[in-house]
Design a protein around this nucleic acid. Structure first.
Lengths: 196, 196
DNA sequence: CCTACCGATCGGTAGG
DNA sequence: CCTACCGATCGGTAGG
């Protein structure tokens, strides 16, 4: 019975996290109340606290889940034996797919992380800076190899990552084009913009 | 005296709006309280209401100020006798400069507009959709003229506008490169990505 | 998982 | 422009 209970609690918490991602994405972290969350979960507000510590915990679990996924991916791609420009393309495709498939949590992690409480805020900030630095190094390697234009690598990273987070509006709209078409369009423009 | 009073009230309101832009950018609209605003303005919270109707008014004045500036600009550029690709470049430079020079209000208009109250919310939404449609038409004209790659125009608009709003982080950072260099880097990548 | 409730803070008003 | 204050709502707890 202890076993069953643990499993139930875990999935219950995952369910709450999923609803929280959706709610925070829709209303913003500060604007979404625990009573709002309780309503979509289907319990009274007080009951949520049997599964989570507090509202902040919800946000940091969402943000770090996304951050961890990014860190694992860039680690993997850095180790691959392909050209820097191909690494950039792979990373961009990964971001685009993440935005399309895990839209709510990626969006929340992108736009609401500033409401993280310490020490999570500092930790997230550091991870984010680190990730961008590693991404920029790949671009610099491509410049050295003369397969990428001579641009400021940090600026390139910034605009590419933000360009992709803009898919938000596509996702919310009538989706005139498919996810795959969307991906190819973005790659054409962004990789095309970097390629020498 | 009535004259002087009017002038004073106007500049006082502008001062409040400027502080509000800065505060909403920093903390987010929902998270920034009228008491926070009063503190940076240097009065008691109740005194703010002699200059403004309510908190919502602050947000919609900020958002529509930015929206009006964009509408005027695209109207002007549409009428110019230059190639579609040059129009795109002009528009992008305009957005980049706006982000650098009127950072706080542009940022707030971009990220906090969802907290607008009706009828401003619907109105803003319509203007925004309209602006993007006009921008996309310029890109489509460039595709027809074969000076722009065959991309989905709405997707291109989305990612370009979001790429630029990403300058946020540059602005907040140590500004390793100048505003002009930043602008040239973005143009190289984005216009380079579109050009056939 | 619920009822009942807390102290804090919110946007905003009355009245001067 | 201030003091004094309002009703509403917030995150969270006690106790069962």
């Amino acid at each position: 019975m202890g076993r069953i209970k643990t499993i139930d609690n875990t999935s219950r918490k995952d369910f709450i996290l999923k609803k929280a991602s959706s709610l925070f994405r829709e209303k913003g972290f500060k604007s979404a109340s625990m009573r709002d969350l309780a309503e979509v979960v289907g319990v009274e507000a007080a009951s949520l606290y049997n599964h989570i510590k507090n509202k902040n915990e919800l946000l940091h679990e969402i943000c770090f889940k996304v951050a961890n996924r990014y860190n694992e991916k860039i680690e993997q791609i850095e180790a691959e034996d392909i050209s820097p420009l191909d690494k950039v393309e792979k990373l961009l495709r990964f971001h685009i797919q993440g935005m399309v498939q895990q839209f709510e949590e990626v969006y929340v992690s992108d736009r609401e992380w500033k409401y993280l409480s310490e020490p999570y805020l500092s930790n997230f900030h550091t991870q984010r800076k680190n990730y961008r630095k590693r991404f920029a190094s790949i671009i610099d390697a491509g410049i050295q190899k003369k397969e990428i234009k001579r641009v400021d690598a940090s600026t390139a990273v910034l605009i590419m990552l933000h360009a992709i987070s803009g898919i938000e509006s596509w996702h919310r709209s009538k989706q005139k084009i498919s996810g795959k078409e969307l991906e190819e369009n973005i790659i054409v423009i962004l990789v095309g913009g970097l390629k020498k």
